[in-house]
Design a binder for these strands. Structure first.
Ligand SMILES: NC(=O)c1ccc[n+]([C@@H]2O[C@H](COP(=O)([O-])OP(=O)(O)OC[C@H]3O[C@@H](n4cnc5c(N)ncnc54)[C@H](O)[C@@H]3O)[C@@H](O)[C@H]2O)c1
Ligand SMILES: NC(=O)c1ccc[n+]([C@@H]2O[C@H](COP(=O)([O-])OP(=O)(O)OC[C@H]3O[C@@H](n4cnc5c(N)ncnc54)[C@H](O)[C@@H]3O)[C@@H](O)[C@H]2O)c1
Lengths: 217, 217
DNA sequence: TTCACGCTGTGAATTGATTCACAGCTACAA
DNA sequence: TTGTAGCTGTGAATCAATTCACAGCGTGAA
């Protein structure tokens, strides 16, 4: 079950994109895709796609390309869609609620199963279909469910404490939206999604068209 | 006023982070920072910080490090905080509202000045302090204000059309949250923020601790 | 049955980003 | 005044990601 080669985070991210467009292709009854088609739909190069599929050992046919449904299954397996994955969200503010609304019921085996907030007005009810608990119930709820992934949408001042508690509860992957650099023990994966930096970056290039050049990833 | 060397998008993103932590440092009355301190606060290496500051030609003192307020001013200038920047948001759903709530009034010279939606129930009022207009008023509103940056938070099915319209209105930088690969003409900067991929990536590494290894960027 | 086209799989090359490593400087201590 | 510890600025080295380029194959056409 061990991974032979190490998989880069970029590759995993692209797998998620492949999965999405393969889903659409499957819905439109396409049976095969060429690497250049998949690439186009994802905004990548054909060589990139072939390289990625190589890393998960998927192989296509030289004349017909890749079998859509087979590849979809393979990519889904790779991403862990074969067994249920449970996620938790902490911080039911504007952003937390947007995420709950979006992700709940979107995929039954990849689901946010609990939300937490320090504000007692927001807890002990169901928001967008997810049970909301006070933060001090975290361990009690998360441990038995073996939740592995946590989403942090609390203010920056509370984020480190929340991260620490989530890790204590057995979470090994964190998606952090708070604008602070969190410290996590080795073995815990941390991904920061910094909306402010992203926006300032876009504004920078919008205002400096000379730099935009070939910056179109 | 032209950029001599090309600036990478990664560097710009880090500039935004530097700006944030420099702001905090200034508030706490720190007068100087060493590259390794700034690096620690941003989760980067000291060499990286020095390299970045080199690209904007900022230079510190070998014994006291960098002057906080001077560097803050310099980085802010670099990012374009010296003149007002106007942004527009299209799609006043959950995510759009979260962004409006967060970015409005946070910085008066870097501001979302208009929001648009196709749903007539959502327009012609003020949400979180921002005027909301019907989509067909886009040109009329954006052109005179010289809005350069657009945020797209509409459903995937509408995103390409919205992107096209924004570009028509003179926008040269787009931050897209919709899970589709948009096509924009050369010279327009496009940044995709794909929350689903980000989440699936975290879930992947949460479930494959072996791969987490040195993946801690 | 044979041919030719256009695709895949993949080493090798390239490009880009990050880190190393160290010369040179500066403030402070003695 | 001199010594020194610890920092910056930066060329060179390394490491990571992407692209090139092409051998080899499978399919459909003739
Ligand atoms: N909304 C955005 O567009 C946006 C943009 C950039 C960054 N962010 C960051 O994302 C995070 C969330 O943003 P938001 O707009 O949803 O904020 P918000 O203020 O609307 O929500 C924060 C929520 O966290 C809860 N909370 C506070 N302390 C807590 C604790 N210790 N434990 C559990 N819950 C706690 C609050 O009760 C609140 O419900 C913030 O860190 C913010 O800086 C948001
Ligand atoms: N909310 C999340 O957490 C999340 C996660 C992943 C991806 N996304 C993506 O972000 C985007 C926005 O998500 P959301 O949850 O806010 O969606 P939402 O459905 O709550 O809001 C979409 C808004 O866009 C408006 N709209 C629809 N067509 C339009 C058009 N042609 N012109 C202008 N406005 C139009 C709708 O009236 C609505 O107000 C979607 O593309 C979604 O896939 C959101």
């Amino acid at each position: 079950m061990a991974q032979q080669k190490k998989i880069s985070s970029k590759t995993v991210e692209r797998m998620s994109q492949y999965r999405r467009v393969l889903g659409r292709l499957a819905e439109s009854n396409a049976t095969h895709v060429y690497s250049h088609e998949l690439a186009y739909l994802c905004g990548l190069s054909a060589a990139q796609v072939r390289r990625d599929l190589m890393t998960i050992g998927f192989t296509g046919s030289s004349a017909r390309g890749y079998d859509v449904s087979e590849l979809l299954r393979r990519v889904s397996d790779f991403l862990g869609f074969s067994r249920e994955r449970r996620l938790a969200l902490v911080g039911i503010g504007y952003l937390g609620r947007a995420l709950l609304d979006y992700f709940v019921d979107r995929n039954p085996i990849f689901r946010i199963c609990a939300a937490f907030d320090a504000d007692l007005d927001k807890v002990d009810r169901v928001i967008h279909g997810v049970r909301c608990y006070p933060v001090d119930k975290m361990g009690e709820i998360l441990r038995p469910l073996q939740v592995q992934t946590g989403i942090i949408t609390v203010p920056a001042s509370a984020a480190q404490q929340v991260a620490f508690e989530l890790v204590e509860c057995g979470v090994t992957g964190l998606l952090n939206f708070a604008p602070v650099q969190l410290r996590v023990p080795p073995g815990v994966y941390l991904e920061n999604l910094d909306l402010t930096s992203a926006l300032e970056k876009v504004a920078y290039f919008a205002g400096n068209p000379a730099d935009t050049e070939r910056e179109m990833k």
